[in-house]
Design a protein around this nucleic acid. Structure first.
Length: 729
RNA sequence: GCGCGGUUAGCUCAGUUGGUAGAGCAACUCAUUUACACUGAGAAGGUCGGGGGUUCAAGUCCCUCACCGCGCACCA
């Protein structure tokens, strides 16, 4: 027995070296995996890592997600599959650019226009490149068995090609179009954001009632009312039946007399306020749709910096927040203020990234049309025939409805369908500089879609693509698309994806959209949606709350194996996880327990020729012990096949500690010290089997300590435990 | 307003098709140099949120109410 077992297990001294050993073996790359029982691995199994932000650091949510995937990956590898787990990072365009801009502002007092587009992009790219290694090394620390030779970055050359190709194909099919539509404007980030990046916050504010000709109208936003010249009334509202649709009414308004037009539409709810509303099509989604329907004029009131335009006359140039009270005051003086409700509670939309209030604006932007019919040339998705007419929405729906994509948790399927039913066209253009620039060129009214400039005089569209556009291609762009690679053939659709539920609309559904359109395939077969890691009070971990737990500190203190177990045991997938450091500590002790089980076993079998033992010599009680082991293996395997990782982990833990250590080893002491040589021999061999099988079962969950022990075993089937065969039963 | 989850031991959570309630941590009693003190043995602790129903049998299925959390919509 090696002396190493005489002192307690030390994760710090072990984990780095073990990871290096794994990496050097080349087995993270499926092309190098050894055959199983003489025959090459044929059945592929693949996952692409949800790419973390390139400038980010590992947080407890990643730690959980990475552990979960690594368990699946290691299990499948031991089952003899051709296993690929592709690593990568995301440029997270808006977030990254915002961060660099802030730094530059702080250190050099310059803004992005001072630097110019080219220089800013260079600086942001440099920043991203420099911080890339941080997150990658942190992922290594978790023990994640990723094939680093296939590392991808959403902004690298290959992914750039994929993004360009995807855009141009969709443009040529007519699914990507440019149009004046109402969008969500982030005045701080100076860019649009998609509907899914809008966060609603409840706010109490004042609600004003104004006299508007013969009507009383209510609003929380008086500053948008300059251009309101339509009054909308429900057609069945008896109070206003003398007014005709289209009727003109002269009335006194903020800056003097105006002519208002009566519009009759069901959109006006007679129950709310006075039952009459005016509309501001330029700055409200609902009003915009109403204006489109009745073909009404639209006027911009607020500019892109959140200031009032000349239409506001004396208020022009003012910030909307300061203009509000002044406008109310003016209306009050004119005797048009009816009353103010101080306790109006409503939801305001804010930007997920910058936190500022979103101002709806009409702008010319690029969109992906989700309801637009197109002919799909090739489709493997059940219910959608190759060459048939379909829509992206239908592709997204059928991929899940048909069962081609499995979402084991029913409730998330419901959320998915609900989201699809409410889906509008996807705004994909962003007014920032860092990202994939839209491959569209203009020259005096002409427009061309191609990567390189068509020649002199052509101007490229200044916008870049939504970062989720490139993320949506992730399952196949990482495998080499648009080239026809063997990786795509072998590993796509991927086998498994385990995202957090909050990312279902943002990412999961869009991968289904893109994979469906470009490949006619689903992007993955199983989506196991997981919950969020929360602290003991049920709060999300965040910097601002100061409750953040750095997984690296935990690894330092307890070892990566313990962190993995602490996150996985007792946490049903899909529910939020309440994280408890005590738990992690318990699994550190467990690693040491296993360490000492090994010590005991190796001491007891030191002079034994393990390979020479035959099955016939096993004692009756040892047969029972082995039977129980087999039952456990069977049970654990069933749980793993059924994605019940938390149950599998707990059962292995329980077996090793409370069966193997507490019962079997205790009972073995008199046998090993006794003089029945046959019984002793049988027990020695049994103990060795129990140890090796336990190591195998535990390996996907606690890869480091199990591999380290494996390295010191005198007799083993493979050099590395990570490629040993999963125990049979 | 529509919808989704949760409510099980002091705490954090499991509980796969209905079949005598489980784990970890904490607390309690005992053991004390043992493969391991990063330890062992033992005991204690729950009318499974309330109420109703189906069933021989319900934590589990159905209805209903309450509280907590979340999503979507509305937001004049």
């Amino acid at each position: 027995m090696h002396d190493i077992f005489l002192t307690p297990y030390d994760p710090q001294a072990t984990e780095g070296a073990i990871y290096k050993k794994w990496e050097e073996s080349g087995y993270f790359n499926p092309d190098n995996l050894p055959p199983v029982n003489g025959s090459p691995r044929t059945e592929p199994f693949s996952i692409v890592l949800p790419p973390p932000n390139v400038t980010g650091v590992l947080h407890i949510g990643h730690a959980y997600e990475d552990s979960l995937q690594d368990v699946v990956i290691r299990y499948q590898r031991m089952r003899g599959k051709k296993v690929l787990w592709v690593p990568g990072t995301d440029s997270a365009a808006i977030a990254t650019q915002a961060r660099v801009e802030k730094n530059i502002q702080k250190e050099e007092g310059k803004n992005r226009h001072d630097l110019g587009r080219e220089e800013l992009v260079r600086r942001v790219s440099e920043f991203a490149k420099n911080s890339e290694n941080t997150i990658l090394n942190q992922i290594r620390k978790m023990g994640a068995s990723l094939d680093w030779s296939r590392y991808a970055y959403t902004m690298d050359e290959k992914r750039y090609r994929a993004v360009m190709e995807a855009f141009i194909r969709m443009f040529n099919t007519g699914l990507i179009y440019r149009g004046h539509r109402i969008i969500n404007w982030d005045s701080k980030g100076q860019t649009t954001i998609s509907d899914d990046e809008v966060v609603y916050k409840e706010e109490k504010s004042k609600f004003y009632y104004f006299q508007y000709g013969p009507f009383v109208i209510g609003t929380a936003r008086p500053e948008t009312k300059f251009g309101d010249k339509y009054v909308v009334i429900h057609p069945d509202d008896k109070r206003y039946k003398e007014y005709e649709h289209g009727q003109k009414i002269e009335l006194e308004w903020i800056n003097g007399p105006i002519t208002a037009t009566v519009i009759k539409d069901e959109a006006s709810d007679p129950e709310i306020g006075s039952g009459v509303m005016t509309i501001t099509p330029w700055h409200s989604q609902v009003d915009f749709e109403l204006a489109e329907k009745h073909n009404l004029e639209k006027e911009q009131i607020i500019d892109q910096y959140g200031k009032l335009l000349p239409i506001a006359q004396e208020f022009a140039g003012m910030k909307i927040t300061e203009a509000r009270e002044k406008i109310v005051e003016k209306l009050h003086k004119k005797g048009l203020l009816v009353k103010i409700d101080e306790n109006y509670v409503h939801n305001i939309s804010t930007s997920e990234r910058t936190g500022v209030t979103i101002e709806p604006q009409i702008m010319e932007q690029w969109f992906v049309g989700v309801d637009k019919p197109f002919i799909i040339p090739h489709s493997e998705i059940p219910g959608i025939e190759s060459g048939s007419e379909t829509t992206l929405k239908k592709v997204m729906r059928m991929a899940v409805e048909s069962g081609a994509i499995q979402i084991p948790q029913e409730r998330f399927k419901k959320i998915y369908f609900h989201w699809i039913n409410n889906l509008n066209d996807w705004n994909i253009s962003r007014q920032i500089w860092f990202g994939h620039r839209i491959p569209i060129w203009y020259k005096s009214g002409e427009i061309k879609a191609q990567v390189d400039s068509p020649g002199a005089g052509w101007e490229q569209d200044p916008d870049v693509l939504d970062t989720w556009f490139s993320s949506a291609l992730w399952t196949f762009s990482t495998l080499g698309w648009p080239e026809k690679t063997t990786d795509i053939e072998t590993y796509h659709p991927t086998s498994f994806m385990s995202p957090a539920y909050e990312i279902l609309p943002l990412w999961v559904s869009r991968m289904i959209l893109m994979s469906g359109f470009h490949l006619g395939q689903i992007p993955f077969r199983t989506v196991m949606i997981h919950g969020l890691v929360r602290d003991k009070q049920g709060r999300k971990f965040s910097k601002s709350l100061g409750n953040g737990i750095d997984p690296l500190d935990l690894i330092e203190k307890y070892g990566a194996d313990a962190v993995r177990m602490g996150l996985l045991v007792g946490t049903a997938i899909g529910n939020d996880i309440s994280f408890d450091e005590q738990k992690v500590k318990g699994y550190k002790n467990f690693a040491n327990k296993l360490w000492n089980i090994t010590r005991f076993t190796l001491e007891a079998t030191e002079k034994l020729d393990i390979s020479s033992f035959s099955v016939g010599k096993v004692s009756e009680q040892d047969k029972k012990i082995l039977e129980k082991l087999n039952d456990t293996v069977k049970d654990v395997t069933k749980d793993l096949e059924g994605s019940k990782y938390h149950l599998a982990a707990e059962k292995i833990y329980h077996y090793i500690w409370h069966e193997l250590a507490d019962k079997i080893i205790e009972e073995s002491k008199p046998i090993l010290n006794g003089d029945n040589t046959q019984e002793k021999l049988s027990r020695q061999h049994t103990l060795y089997i129990l140890l090796t099988v336990s190591l195998k079962m535990l390996h996907p969950f606690m890869p480091f300590v199990t591999e380290e022990i494996w390295q010191h075993l005198p007799e083993k089937e493979t050099e590395l435990l990570m490629v040993a065969g999963w125990p049979t039963h």
